[in-house]
Simulated assay, not measured.
Amino acid sequence: MAIRIIKQKNLTWANIDKVDEEALKYLMENYNFHHLDLEDLQSEAQTPKLDVYKNYLFVVLQFPTWQLHSRTISTQEIDMFLGDEYLITIQHTKSKEMKNFFFRCMRNRKIKSDWMNKSSGYLLNRIIESLFSNSEPILNNMGRQISKLEEEVFSKEPDVKTVRELAIHRRNILNFRRIIDPQRYLISNLTHTRKPFLDESLTLYFNNINDYLSKIWSIIENYKETVDGIHVTVESLIARRTNRVVATLTAISVALLPLTLLSGIYGMNIDNLPFAHNPLYVWLMFLSLATFISVILIILRKKRLL
């Protein structure tokens, strides 16, 4: 079943882990939600937002999740309807974190009493706080991987694997920033929204979430600066290696230029070329070219072009 319900006194928490016909029918039969909100539920991806109505709030939140196999950060969207005596959480894709949170509340009487005896706004706060707290292990994992990459860059020449790892980290940081940034403004708006189920007593709790998001933002900005610095370093090392290869090839071309010139001249079908019929000239030419090439290589070595 896609719909599970917990009741505590006058508060009902309905958790929907799949948006299907059964879920939409349940919402239409039991609540008087705006049809645009129900249409939004059927959209796979939305922008985080807060819609304030007379009797309820419609909240769209997004949270970062770690995809182990692809090593990427993706978006977990959870939509919420918040009213005086109810809270409805809706998942577009099943969330392990939300499932664990819901079953903790269902099976533990003390937790259920603590979370649901106050108001739907307080329960909303606990859910948001719990879901955002799952960002910390993701950040710690990213930090360890970035530190490891930094050590590799400064301990050996960067290769294709290093460049690929750097690209993965840059993408993950951009995804994380894209997810977190809109939530900061949404939570700030939620803090200043006043309803009977969302009064001033909850301001401190939502400010605490805002402070936590600011901390996350500060950490991810530090990661961004670190990865940008590593990116510049890798580009410099690759450019230096490329310049070294180009310089070596240029030196070899310059050293072989006299040989190319002489072979071109004596390869022409022209009579009476100097020393053309002297059997010792070939060895004399080889000796002269070897000496010339050696002198050029010594000069290039002294100028550190090789």
Rank of each mutant, 00 (worst) to 15 (best):
L38N: 03
T12H: 01
R241G: 06
L41N: 01
E22F: 09
L50Y: 04
K156T: 02
K7R: 05
L305V: 06
R178N: 07
N32C: 06
E77Y: 09
L36A: 12
D84E: 14
I5V: 15
I293F: 02
Q67S: 13
I298V: 08
T65S: 15
L57Y: 02
K118V: 15
V52K: 11
S214K: 15
I220C: 12
N272K: 06
M268G: 00
D228L: 04
S120Y: 10
A251R: 04
Q42N: 00
L68Q: 14
R109P: 02
S120W: 04
I252H: 07
R244T: 12
E235L: 12
L68D: 13
W66Y: 14
V245H: 08
I209H: 01
D271A: 15
R194F: 07
K110R: 13
H92M: 08
D84K: 15
F275G: 05
F206N: 05
R177M: 06
S119F: 03
R301C: 05
I298F: 07
K224T: 08
A247C: 03
G143T: 10
T242L: 11
P258Y: 00
H169T: 07
K25M: 11
V60R: 05
K148N: 13
W115Y: 14
T191C: 02
N10Q: 05
K7Y: 01
E97N: 12
S74M: 03
L204E: 15
E221H: 09
E21D: 11
D84G: 05
L198W: 00
P258N: 00
D199Y: 04
T260I: 06
L262M: 11
Y185N: 12
I78M: 03
T12L: 03
A255H: 00
T203C: 14
T260G: 08
T12A: 02
W66F: 13
I220L: 10
N100Y: 13
D228K: 04
E165F: 14
I168T: 08
S120F: 05
V19N: 00
H69P: 07
D51C: 06
L27I: 13
D51H: 14
Q8L: 12
R4D: 13
N243S: 14
N243T: 07
A239W: 01
I173G: 01
R241F: 05
G83M: 03
N30E: 10
D37C: 13
I6E: 01
P158L: 00
S188D: 10
H35N: 15
I265Y: 12
F176G: 02
H169W: 11
I299N: 00
I168R: 15
F102I: 04
L174K: 11
R109L: 06
G121Y: 06
Y223L: 09
V19R: 00
R301N: 13
M28S: 15
